[in-house]
Design a protein around this nucleic acid. Structure first.
Lengths: 176, 176
DNA sequence: CGCCGAGTTGAACTGAATCAAGAAACGTGG
DNA sequence: CCACGTTTCTTGATTCAGTTCAACTCGGCG
C-alpha cells in the first residue's frame, strides 16, 4: 500500500460511483476531495454556444480528483466530473481537510500534489505546441492503454482537440 | 507594497538582468527562485529535430519565476529562461528556501503559488481546446497588452502555437 | 424488431504550414 | 549620423490536414 493510500484511509470516507454517474454537475459547488482507488474519471466542460462537450482530463486509479477552482473558492463549478467506469473512491469534506492543514506535513503533501498537477499540465501544454494530433494520440495510446479499452473514442478525440471523424481517420492511418 | 513583496525583501537578494540575457540556459541546473519586480521573462524549449524554439510562457512584474522541474529535482533544465526586457528581480537559493519550508506559513504560500500556476495552465489548456488561434491572439492582446509593445511577434506566434506567417495574416485580418 | 448512439467513410471546404521572396526595423561600426 | 548587414515581418502560391455536412454501418437495448 502506498504512502498516500495509508494516509487516505485514516481520514477519508469510502464512496462508490457507477459507470456514467456524474460526480459533479455544472453549477454545483464542490465540497469534497476524492481519492480514486479504482476507476477512471473524466473531466469536461460543456460549451452552450457550440453545443459541444470539451474533455480536458482523466483521472486514473491512485490519484486525487476534484473540481479545483470550485473546491478552493467554493463557487459553482463549470468543470464537470463523470465516472467512466464503476469507481471505488474515498472522500474528505473541505472543512475537515482544512483542519488537517494545520499539520505542516499535510500542507507539504498538498504542495507535492499541486506540483505534480502543474508539471502534468505543463507537459500537456508542450504536447499541444509541438505535436500533431496523430503524435498526440500515439502518446496517449502508450501512456494510458487502459483508457482505450472501455472508453468512447469521442472523449479521446475531444481530449486531443480534434473531431471524432478526424480521430477515426488517424486510427485508420496508423493500422495501415 | 504587496504581502509577497514584503516577505520577498526579507529573504531574497537583489539581482538584475539585461534585455536578451539568458537567466537559465539548457543543460544548467536551476538553483534559484526569482521574484520579478520589474520586467518580462520568456520561457522556451529548443527543439533540435525541427531547429525551432517553442515559447511556452511569459512571467511579468510581480510574479515568481523559475524552471520548476529542474529546481525541484536538481536536474539539468530543458526549459530555458530569457529576459525580454531589462529586469529587476530578487532571488533566493534552493537550500535557504528549503530551510524556510519548516515554517508552515511559508509552505502554505508555496501551495498558493502552485495553485495559481496550475489554474493558469488549466485555463490555457482550455483555450487551446476551445479557441481558434485568432481568438487566442485577441485574448492575449487584452490580457497582456504590454507584451506586444516590445516583444518580437515570433515569440507570440510560438506561444499561441502557430507560425509567424500565420500570426501576421491574423493581425492583418483583425485590422480590416 | 426498431431505435439510438458510436464509429466510419465520402466530398467539399477552410485555415494553417510550408517554401520562397521581398520590405521594414534594428543594431553596430565606421 | 549614416551605411550595412541581420533579424523580423509581410506577402504570395501551393499543399495538406482537419472541419463540416451528410450518409451509412454496427451493436446494444428497449
Amino acid at each position: 500500500m502506498s504512502f498516500f493510500e495509508e494516509n487516505v484511509r485514516k481520514f477519508f470516507i469510502p464512496v462508490q460511483f457507477q459507470k456514467g454517474d456524474f460526480m459533479l454537475s455544472a453549477g454545483k459547488v464542490e465540497h469534497f476531495l476524492y481519492y480514486i482507488e479504482r476507476g477512471i474519471v473524466r473531466y469536461f466542460y460543456y460549451n452552450t454556444l457550440k453545443d459541444k462537450e470539451i474533455t480536458t482530463d482523466f483521472t486514473f486509479s491512485g490519484q486525487f480528483c476534484l473540481s479545483y477552482a470550485s473546491f478552493v473558492k467554493q463557487i459553482p463549478s463549470v468543470l464537470q466530473m463523470q465516472a467512466l467506469t464503476d469507481i471505488k473512491a474515498y472522500k474528505i469534506g473541505r472543512s475537515q481537510l482544512e483542519k488537517l492543514m494545520n499539520n505542516i506535513e499535510v500542507v507539504k503533501i498538498k504542495a507535492v500534489i499541486l506540483e505534480k498537477l502543474f508539471v502534468e499540465k505543463s507537459e500537456r501544454e508542450l504536447r499541444f505546441l509541438t505535436q500533431t494530433p496523430e503524435e498526440n494520440y500515439l502518446y496517449l495510446l502508450q501512456k494510458e492503454p487502459v483508457l482505450l479499452q472501455n472508453i468512447p473514442l469521442k472523449y479521446i478525440a475531444s481530449y486531443i482537440g480534434i473531431t471524432p471523424q478526424a480521430l477515426s481517420r488517424i486510427r485508420k492511418r496508423i493500422v495501415l
